[in-house]
Amino acid sequence: MSSDEDEWVPFSRRPEWSDVKPVPQDDGPHPVVPIAYRADFRETMDYFRAVYLSGERSHRALNLTAEAISMNPGNYTVWYFRRLVLEAVDADLNDEMEYINCVASKNSKNYQIWHHKRWLAEKLGPEVAQKELEFTKRIFAIDAKNYHAWSHRQWVLDALGGWQNELDYCTELLEDDIFNNSAWNQRYFVITRSPLLGGLQSMRESEVSYAVEAILSNPENESPWRYLRGLYKGDPNLLICNNQISGVCLQVLKTKHNIIFPLSLLLELLCHGFQPSTEFVSAVEALRTSVPESSSTSSLANTICSVLEIVDPIRSNYWSWRRSHLPSQVC
């Protein structure tokens, strides 16, 4: 028996619970997926069911939910009931925030905890924005891609504010790990949504430069390539006009290494009407030497797909599909 269990006092032996009759789980005579509950878990849940069913919204009920949560933080019914109790007993929500931060640090990948935090932060209002941003920062120091923590951070920014240093924070995270796609996504979120930056159109130019620089230092990094395309989402005519974008494709293509992303982006440009200069044609032609079967009369877009079918074999089906469904103007 573990020391934990030694220290744990059964509810049946706690005087303050003597008036409550535990309610066993109605699993039926032959349950499937039965869990061999340990005595402490079973009893805690039996008492939880009792207060949940009687609707007892008291301090002892609050403590009981904490015990139940410590054994299974994924029980959303317990969390739901805890919120009802918190409201009924008019609990100090700052204390509750401290408590939830403690639980969240140990279980950072759990929907219920983050939902609870959001509920609390909403009640506490803009004054907790900074604290919440700091908290997610601590989570990112351990796992910079924690999905729940990123959702929470975005919600805080949107609902409570705190945008001032957000772009710098993204830059900082990307300096640590330029491959961190969550940080790229956050960057996109900031430049499109921050009330302090003037939106995508005013940020576009500087962000193109940022992404291009990231690509040139690590051309095998998919994140900035997708980011670059994202900067022109819904605006393909501007995408094809930006020389920096076609330029970075050409520059990477000429190295003949990591050619999948630049070829893919160039294909995108062509599909939207980009008119390639002879330089582009010859850069792609230079890659074609290893692709003897493609006909010399085929279009540049067609050749790109053929090259990709060979150099990106895991996606050969995809590239072959793209090749047979090119927009008519680039066939």
């Binding site: 997926v33 869990i35 061999a36 509950y37 878990f41 054994m71 299974n72 933080p73 994924g74």
Partner: peptide, 24 residues
Amino acid sequence: RGLNQLGPTYRVLDANRPWLCYWI
């Protein structure tokens, strides 16, 4: 085996038992 019996550590999936049924 999972359908018939799960060990004590599965308490963290105690709010996911229909999921365990479906997965299995």
